[in-house]
């Protein structure tokens, strides 16, 4: 468990040292949510319907925008070589990335969501099903993003390409995530993508270790 803890610790330290920390992601979400009433007007009934969509859009956007931080930044400056040679198990490296990335980029949204929902006059009972789906769905999305990032390490720095690969894979999560009753399917989907992601990311890392 020590290697797992160390690697998560390292990623969290990088996040805290640089500007890409919790505050950054949290303020990003707040900004997107604040933009919405300017587009759709201040009718609270309409805003309440849109709110759920905004949350899922912003979480997909944050997954897409931070995709290069999963493995690419470490690959570019050579830290990935260092990590690969110091840790025997690829699976632990990957699992550490899942946890660290989810904590840095998805947890802030889930934490501030109840407070943001106050702006749209939603009660806790309205927001609770969304919250559960968001926790499960964002984990699944992080699994998918990790293997996309690991597999596209050798590609040139093109966020568009990675987006084209990533977005179709995220669609099922969004579809089941938006529906409050489909959390069992969401769990199954996340578990499936976890299994695929472990194999695919390890394959990608092994290729770039070479």
């Amino acid at each position: 468990m020590k290697p797992l803890y160390d690697l998560i610790n390292r990623d969290l330290k990088i996040a805290f040292f640089t500007s890409s920390n919790f505050l950054f992601t949290a303020s990003f979400f707040i900004l997107i949510v604040v933009l919405i009433p300017f587009i759709f007007g201040s009718d609270s009934e309409q805003l309440r319907i849109i709110f759920k969509g905004i949350i899922w859009i912003s979480i997909s956007l944050s997954i897409l925008l931070t995709l290069e931080r999963i493995f690419y930044s470490d690959y570019e400056d050579g830290s990935l070589d260092l990590i690969l040679q110091r840790y025997e198990s690829l699976e632990i490296i990957i699992c550490a990335k899942y946890i660290a990335h989810w904590v840095i980029n998805c947890l802030p949204l889930i934490v501030i969501l109840p407070f943001l929902s106050l702006l749209f006059q939603l009660t806790f009972s309205d927001i609770f099903p969304i919250l559960i789906n968001l926790v499960i769905g964002s984990m699944g999305m992080v699994f998918v993003a990790t293997f996309v990032s690991a597999l596209t390490l050798g590609a040139k720095r093109t966020i568009f390409l990675k987006g084209i690969i990533l977005i179709p894979l995220l669609v099922p999560f969004i579809i089941f995530g938006v529906d409050p009753h489909s959390w069992p399917i969401l769990i199954a989907l996340s578990m499936m993508s976890f299994v695929i992601s472990i194999y695919a990311s390890a394959y990608g890392l092994r290729l770039y270790g070479e």
Partner: peptide, 22 residues
């Protein structure tokens, strides 16, 4: 390796902290 494994936007001492973890 030829790549330095240094994070460009961090200070030297912070980079050492990351290496110490590894």
């Amino acid at each position: 390796g030829q790549k330095n494994a240094l994070k460009e936007n961090l200070s030297v001492s912070k980079n050492f902290k990351l290496w110490e973890i590894i």
